[in-house]
């Protein structure tokens, strides 16, 4: 490039570009050579017998520190113990979790790149028109992990005290009542869709970017009510900063024993929980899946995992749910549930 520095202005002279091309060609050769040594080192993915022989990566399609990331890190540690290989967590966030899921869908089916995704796996096909993967066909399920319950909460000085009163209040004040959600595809938005159905009211939804700011405005009394995971709501409920109306699970939640379920409160259809499942790309060897299922099941029996999940207001799923069959069944049912609900609500992101 010595000659070029003395060239004042104008397009590059012919010799410069000629040399440049030759250099580029040389580099390409180097690149190919490097590629060759790189792939030569990796072992074949055939054997389920020897699996695992290298580090396993679990992709979380959300940012580090979020609830899904937390769940993943909790199970990753005990899983690496029982698998005898390091299990690391990688955050590939964006587009409501579809970027990370897409990456795993197209990854090599050798059991070294897995996906831990939540309920969003079942809502994405209805929300995103051009999804590059199909949840049921492009993944193999490994097992369910946990289901985080949700709570319906209101600002501390909202008039109604029970869920029935809240329904009546919402009907009487449908022009002014506001519902906060954490953005399209968020659990709070999905719960809002079910609430509209169950209450029979069109809600005025106020959208936030994430649960944090939505909760801030609820605690500050700027919006009327919302429905979110116990992870986010329990501390505010316990401190009396918000009013709690119901939990959206079939049974009462251990950390909130005084709070009635939606069924008890007379709205049995209003059931939603943020379930998490572990996936591998389609074509992964069944022996590999078996090993992963076993490792996951063992991790979910770890007392430390159980204790930390309890802090999240959650618990590992029942042992019979940590199977590919149970996981696939729930995924199928959830795809059937959310597809129509989301389509009827007219939510579409592209």
């Amino acid at each position: 490039m010595v000659s070029a520095s003395s060239t004042p202005l104008g397009p590059p002279s012919a010799p410069v570009s000629g040399r440049f091309l030759r250099r580029a060609a040389g580099l390409a050769t180097v690149g190919v050579a490097l590629a060759a040594c790189g792939s030569g080192g990796t072992t074949g993915a055939t054997a389920g017998v020897n699996y695992p022989t290298q580090t396993i990566t679990i992709v979380v399609p959300f940012s580090a520190g979020g609830p899904t990331d937390t769940v993943t890190r909790l199970v990753a540690e005990p899983m690496s113990k029982s698998l005898g290989q390091q299990v690391i967590v990688q955050n590939v966030e964006g587009a409501g979790g579809t970027l990370g899921a897409g990456e795993v869908a197209s990854a090599k089916a050798d059991g070294y790149k897995l996906l831990l995704h939540h309920i969003g796996m079942s809502t994405a096909p209805a929300l995103y028109a051009n999804l590059p993967y199909k949840p049921l066909e492009d993944f193999k399920t490994i097992g369910l992990v946990t289901e985080v319950p949700m709570t319906i909460i209101g600002k501390s000085d909202l008039a109604p005290n029970t869920l029935a009163e809240l329904v009546a209040y919402a009907k009487a004040n449908k022009a002014t009542i506001t519902y906060a959600n954490a953005g399209v595809g968020a659990a709070s938005q999905l719960c809002g869709l079910l609430i509209e159905k169950a209450f029979g009211v069109d809600l005025t939804e106020v959208a936030y970017k994430g649960t944090g700011p939505a909760m801030t405005d609820l605690v500050g009394g700027q919006v009327d009510f919302m429905c979110d995971q116990t992870t986010n709501t329990t501390p505010q409920i316990k401190a009396g900063k918000v009013k709690v109306y119901a939990v959206t699970t079939a049974e009462r939640v251990k950390s909130l024993p005084d709070v009635p379920t939606t069924t008890e409160a007379g709205l049995p259809d209003l059931k939603v929980g943020v379930w998490h499942g572990l996936y591998a790309p389609k074509g992964t060897d069944d022996a590999v899946i078996k090993k992963l299922t076993d490792a996951l099941a063992a991790a979910l029996k770890d007392p430390k995992v159980i204790a930390k999940m309890a802090d999240l207001g959650s618990a590992p799923v029942a042992a019979d749910q940590v199977t590919p069959a149970a996981h696939t069944k729930l995924l199928t049912a959830q795809l059937d549930l959310w597809g129509p609900v989301i389509k009827n609500a007219g939510v579409k992101t592209s």
């Binding site: 490039m1 010595v2 040399r19 250099r23 580099l27 180097v30 690149g31 490097l34 590629a35 790189g38």
Partner: peptide, 26 residues
């Protein structure tokens, strides 16, 4: 292609842009 090939190419091209850097230097 991975980090190593990408970095080699990128830093080589960037270095070539420097005043008085020869291809070997780059």
């Amino acid at each position: 292609l991975g980090l190593v090939p990408a970095l080699l190419v990128a830093t080589f091209l960037a270095a070539l842009a420097g005043h008085g850097t020869s291809p070997l230097g780059a």
